[in-house]
Nucleic acid binder design. Structure first.
Length: 197
DNA sequence: TTGCCGATTACCT
DNA sequence: GGTAATCGGCAAC
């Protein structure tokens, strides 16, 4: 059984946290105690005030992004395109609104429940995208602003395996000048569970 | 108040 | 390859 990640982990450099979240386990605990878990295989770093692609660029503050201003280790969940949710882990200190977007998981426990939550037939289609994994794990706006250390949502340390990592530009943010080419996306090399082309 | 667009996805030709 | 679905933020009217 893996250990819950200590909150101090999330206070470091956001790019480092994004890289080191690869291989850790996202755990969703249902009201009946069932565990839905997946190994994190793809992440992206969003660097707050100085990052034009980040919701908190220039320290913008709205109701939607209030949780980004919480201390590292909280969740930031928002609605995108009016129909999908994206799950982020807040990093750094309070009032330093940076975060890591969790883009893909390799399903581990509770796979049959994930199949019930999404209408797909292949396991590779369950959590291979930020909107997909929220659907599979039943994460919505009510999970925004939670401390990721207990039910219903937390992150565990994983099995300590090492992975070959690839870094690349972030997906879906064209037209943001130099920020569009920053290599802030990380994923496990050769994983079949990452975002598809 | 209106209109456009987004850290997406599924389904269409 | 293209585009509809559908809501909140925000700039423009």
């Amino acid at each position: 059984m893996s250990k819950i990640v200590n909150s101090s982990f999330y206070l470091g450099e956001t790019k480092t946290v994004a890289r080191e979240l690869i291989g850790k386990i996202l755990v969703r605990i249902l009201p009946n105690g069932s565990r839905l878990t997946g190994r994190i295989v793809e992440t992206e770093a969003y660097l707050g005030a100085k990052d034009p692609a980040c919701h908190s660029f220039g320290l913008r503050k709205t109701k939607r992004i209030e949780s980004m201003y919480l201390k590292g280790g909280h969740s930031y969940v928002y609605l995108i395109y009016g129909m999908y949710y994206c799950f982020n882990v807040v990093t750094r200190e309070k009032n330093e609104p940076e975060a890591v977007l969790i883009r893909a998981l390799e399903p581990l426990e509770g796979v049959n429940i994930m199949f019930r939550n999404r209408k797909v037939t292949r396991e590779q289609d369950l959590c291979s995208g930020p909107g997909k994994l929220c659907q599979a794990m039943g994460i919505d706006r009510s999970f925004d602003g939670l401390l990721l250390k207990s039910s219903p949502l937390l992150i565990e340390g994983g099995d300590g395996s090492k992975f070959d990592l690839i870094s690349s530009p972030r997906i879906g943010i064209p037209g943001k000048g130099v920020a569009s080419s920053w290599k802030l996306r990380f994923h496990v090399k050769d994983s079949t569970f990452v975002t598809k082309k």
